[in-house]
Every structure is written in structure tokens, then in C-alpha cells.
Amino acid sequence: MALAVGHSAASDTLTGGDPLGSMQWPDLKRQFFESNATTEFDARIKVTVPLFAEDAMNVPVSFDASALGRVEKIVVLVDRNPIRKVLEFIPGRAKPSLNFRFKLEQASPIRVAALTPDGVWHVGYAFIEASGGGCTVPGATRADGSWPQTLNKVASRVFDEKASRRDTRLRVQVSHPMDTGLVSGIPAFYIEELVLQDGDKAVLARLYPFEPISENPLFSFDFDQPPKGPMSLQGRDNNGNRINAKVGN
């Protein structure tokens, strides 16, 4: 019994008390949070992923941190990806929830860390099994050379509850190769910022994608009430190309 307790204590020291037992978690904390930041694992953040990533270049993820109340910022991290930060999300007037797809290099925990006004980072998590390789192969439009014809074009659709006009979802897709820079001869080329605005140009949400986001990224934003239209999506990629489109019409 004493040996078992000692082993558990040693394991907690190596993993920082991570519920998934990942020895990468302490390093993630050092890399992406301030040294004096308070982090706590929180089951109120719902993270939904497939049990197995059938397509490692397009792994669907959804999260919802609404149970925390007000959330100022959300960061998504993947322990075992060569590029660990997937995105940053400032919900603003949107719900602190998001649906998207990303590239996964190997089986790994995924973390959704939500910052509340009291300065605490609440961390939700899940584990995804995968055969891997999603970060180190070219996407389809890069492989066939078609990406310049569609670069930064935007498609969108609004879904809502017709009876109450509540619980509105906006889905947007931006055509972009989202190159990680980990494929020989192909430098990193990815969307750096997306800003969603309402009809009065008020910012509804800000999103900062990183290289692991899937090619032709698709994002779904949720709202308690339909935003005032017409909405617009502004943004840029790391080569200075601009994104400017009306959405949700």
C-alpha cells in the first residue's frame, strides 16, 4: 500500500496532477501560461472529439465553456503535436463555444483552457487516438495546385431556432491551405486572425488560428440572440493577404 501511494505521488509530480497522466502537461503550462497563473482542471468545460481520428488532417472538435459564466479568452492546445497551440478565441458577444477541425500528428490529449475574470484558467480535456501524420503532409489543394484560385474566399450559413429566434449558430468556411511549414519545400502559410463583426461594426468575436487548423478551415460560432446584420468577417494570413466578406446573409 505504501508503495502504491509513493508511486502515485511520483506520478503526480511528473504530470502536474494531469487527469490524463500526460508528462507533457507541466511543459505546456510553462510554455503557454504565465508563471504565476492559476490553472485548474474543470469538468464544466465540455470537449467533444472522436475516439479515433479517422482523418488526421481533419479532426473534428467542439467545446463549450458556457457553464463557467463569463469567459474572457480560450486557448486550445495539443500535447503531442509538433506545433502545440491550435487556436486562441476571444468570445466577446458570442458564447464561449466553438466547433472546428484541426491536424493531429499522433494520439494525444487536447486541452481547452478558458480564462475567467478572476484570473483563473479552467482546463477541459479529452484524448484522441490516431494513426497520425496530419501535420507533416500537404493538404489536397496544395497537392493539386488549386489553392490560388480560391484563396481566402468565404462561405457561410446561419442556423437558428425559428420559433424563438434564439440559439443562433453561424458557420463560416475560409478557403486557405493552412500549411504548417513542416512539409519539405512548403513554408508555413496560415490564417493569423479572424474578426467577426455585426452590422454596426461592433466586434462579436475574435479568433486567432495557428498552423494546426485544418485546410479550408470551418468554424461554428454560437449566440444567445441573433446578431444584428449584415455581419462581416475580416482577417489576414501570415503573408499579408486580407479576408473581407459579408457572412450569414
Rank of each mutant, 00 (worst) to 15 (best):
G119T: 05
P82S: 11
A245V: 08
P187Q: 04
Q106S: 12
P138V: 06
G229F: 10
K95R: 15
S22A: 11
D237K: 02
K85V: 08
R101C: 09
T38C: 04
R44C: 05
D160T: 11
W25R: 11
P19E: 03
E105M: 08
E161C: 06
T136V: 14
R171S: 14
E192G: 10
R30W: 10
T15F: 06
G199M: 04
L98K: 07
L115F: 03
T136L: 05
D224A: 08
E129K: 12
A143W: 09
I74A: 10
K46G: 00
L204V: 04
N216Q: 06
M57I: 03
I110P: 04
L204G: 01
F63L: 04
R206M: 09
H122A: 06
K153L: 13
T141Q: 13
V183C: 02
Y125W: 10
V247N: 00
R84F: 05
Q149N: 12
L3Y: 09
P212H: 00
D224H: 06
K228R: 13
C135M: 15
K46I: 03
V75D: 04
H176G: 13
A245Q: 06
A113Y: 05
D200F: 12
E88H: 03
T13E: 12
N36C: 03
I90A: 14
A4S: 09
R242E: 07
R171V: 12
N81F: 01
D27Y: 10
A245D: 06
L151D: 03
I90S: 14
A143K: 12
Q24A: 14
T180P: 15
L3F: 08
V49P: 04
D27R: 12
D200Y: 13
R142G: 02
T116G: 03
Y190N: 15
R242W: 00
Q24F: 10
D118G: 07
A67M: 06
E192H: 03
